[in-house]
């Protein structure tokens, strides 16, 4: 048990995750450039191993902390990477879009890189403050991050869409972008990722409301984090309604998805650092 505690509270596993994702990211880009199938397979394998270590890191932290391993900013960033890579791997299997890995991995590397850049005291295992000490922490935060990951994947696909569209309009298929699926598929996948994320976001916000009702005496307090989750919800609700008929397609739709993700990033980071409130556990 003490071995698990030592590994769980150390950064060994986390550092391995960052290293493996970094290697996978490089391999995906090499695959893009070289168009060599083996390179792509290698990238996928490294990604999968990274994800396994990511899982182990989360489990290890959980055992060492005796609470859900997503109780501070550092830990949630690794939950985000875990969920994004899981979502991406499912997508890769189902739609055979290995090349999208380069972009999803870039996003994930931003996340884990940011985690590593946090001041040391934010990275450590810490006991929970009284309000966070609840089983809702497990459910609410996990659901929220599953939705963040889906929105992140959607935004990554939207970026690929825009790049591909631009190169197409210039009359070149693009030497690098050749590997990508056609713009129609990209457009559809962007939409699908949001369709996965939106019910999860809704569920996550409702779990949060249930938690608030247990902890604070009201399910809705217009606390900045709650409010920004509502803003994000409005944005994606608008997106889904606009997609419903054939109205919103192509580039405007892609920009909309990216805009939605900007709102997610603000909900996740902006609120914690810019606006104080009940959720101000980051500082």
């Amino acid at each position: 048990m003490s071995v698990i505690n030592t590994i769980g509270s150390s950064f060994l596993l986390y550092n391995t995750v960052v290293a493996l994702y970094l290697v996978a990211g490089i391999l995906y880009f090499l695959f893009l450039i070289s168009h060599k199938k083996e390179m792509g397979q290698m990238a996928s394998t490294v990604t999968f191993s990274g994800w396994v270590v990511n899982t182990a890191a989360l489990v290890g932290r959980g055992l060492a902390d005796h609470h859900a391993p997503w109780s501070n900013l550092y830990e949630t960033l690794f939950l985000f990477s875990w969920a994004s890579i899981l979502g991406y791997m499912i997508m890769e299997m189902k739609y055979k879009v290995r090349v999208a890995g380069a972009f999803v991995m870039t996003l994930v590397l931003f996340a884990v890189g940011a985690a590593k850049l946090l001041p040391y005291r934010y990275q450590m295992v810490e006991p929970l403050n009284p309000a966070l000490n609840s089983y809702w922490l497990k459910i609410h935060v996990f659901t929220m991050f599953m939705s963040y990951a889906a929105f992140g994947i959607s935004a990554s696909l939207a970026v690929i869409y825009l790049l591909k569209k631009r190169s197409e309009s210039r009359g070149t298929t693009g030497w690098i972008l050749k590997e990508f699926p056609n713009t129609d598929s990209l457009d559809d996948m962007t939409y699908k990722a949001v369709m996965v994320g939106f019910p999860l976001l809704t569920l996550g916000v409702i779990f949060g409301a249930m938690w608030a009702y247990e902890a604070w005496g009201g399910y809705w307090s217009w606390d900045p984090k709650e409010t920004w989750s509502l803003i994000t919800w409005f944005v994606y609700a608008a997106y889904l309604h606009a997609r419903m008929t054939r109205g919103l397609r192509g580039a405007p739709s892609a920009w909309f998805s990216i805009g939605g993700f900007v709102s997610v990033v603000f909900l996740y980071w902006g609120v914690s650092f810019i606006i104080p409130g009940l959720h101000a556990y980051a500082a």
Partner: peptide, 14 residues
């Protein structure tokens, strides 16, 4: 309505 509400809601957070 969704977009207008999203826009207005932002003010209350700042």
């Amino acid at each position: 309505l969704f977009l207008i509400l999203a826009f207005l809601t932002i003010f209350g957070t700042f």
